[in-house]
Amino acid sequence: MNIITNLFSSSVGKKYIMAVTGFSLFGFVIAHLIGNLQIFLGPEAINRYGHFLQSNMEIIWPARIGLLVIIALHIWAAIKISAENKAARPVAYAEYNPTVASYASRTMLMSGLIVFFFILYHLLHFTVQVDQVNLTGKSFVNLHDAEGRHDVFAMMVLGFSKPIVSLFYIIAISLLSLHLSHGVRSMFQSLGWKKKSYANVLHCFATGVSIFIFVGYVSIPIAILLGFGKEALSK
């Protein structure tokens, strides 16, 4: 009982929640990226992968519910912490210089919330496949390949062929990378897993992995806008 109250009511405990849920979501972002990059291996690879995920209910639903709980906890902690932080300084400075505090570290709530709204759109776009939001005038649900599997390759090419959709995607990924450049570094600090001897390694890892995530995700809409997978559009 005591451990639960300490986790949910103390300042340090809430940061543990933030860090652990953040780490899980970071893991998802990496796994999702590696899954999606299979688009560059051609329709066969990504459609097989899509079919594999969709046909294993006992994997995909626990994963979805788990992610939902984790996101809810992450956002709850973020809003609670931000509200307390605002209340901790009722009178603002006339002049305030945050010195070394990075832009990413000062905008975590805003970058996080924008990414959250992107995720809602992204789910409607590619997961629920609501035709009204894809702006192509075509239906994603009816795309199937020769083997009768859902044609994920064609859906991605079609979806990102709309420049406005790709632009929103690229903006969201930029903010996600910014969020993670601070978040990945801070989660180790918040959990107390940081020492001088490897602090630099953590710092480089956070920066490196954020760049990797940015380049990895953005490469997909950019490649599609440059003509990758054009043949799928004619279907």
């Binding site: 103390s10 300042s11 340090v12 405990g13 809430k14 940061k15 543990y16 912490i81 307390e84 932080n85 209340a87 901790a88 300084r89 945050p98 010195t99 070394v100 505090a101 990075s102 570290s105 000062r106 975590m108 601070h182 570094r185 801070s186 180790f188 600090q189 918040s190 959990l191 107390g192 897993w193 940081k194 020492k195 001088k196 602090a199």
Partner: peptide, 29 residues
Amino acid sequence: GNCTVTGSCEAVCPKEISLDFIAKLNREF
């Protein structure tokens, strides 16, 4: 308020107390 690891505190500390102590506090807690 809560620590969001911006590092502003360490930068102005007249005794240059390191942010690593906050990690230590988190570990102890």
